[in-house]
């Protein structure tokens, strides 16, 4: 029985949970901050995107792993 598709699906599925939560929390906090201090919106947005990128990078590693499992 070939379990590698399942492994790939689990890799990206589980690997996306953490970054998903992280991006949600980040965006929520950033919105809150912008709501409290709308003048600082550009700075907050820039830093939010930067932080989201770091969180997202982890999901990308999961994607790479999933792709490697699927295609090797």
């Amino acid at each position: 029985m070939n379990l590698s598709p399942l492994a790939a699906a689990l890799a990206i599925g589980i690997g996306a949970i953490g970054p998903g939560l992280a991006i949600g929390i980040l965006a929520a906090k950033a919105m809150e901050a912008i709501g409290r201090n709308p003048e600082a919106a550009p700075v907050i947005q820039t830093n939010m995107i930067l932080a989201i990128v770091f969180a997202e990078a982890i999901a990308i590693y999961a994607l790479v792993v999933a792709l490697l499992i699927k295609f090797i």
């Binding site: 990128v53 997202e56 990078a57 990308i60 590693y61 994607l63 790479v64």
Partner: peptide, 9 residues
Amino acid sequence: GRLISFSFR
């Protein structure tokens, strides 16, 4: 890591 995340994103 940035190299990988840039390209794979």
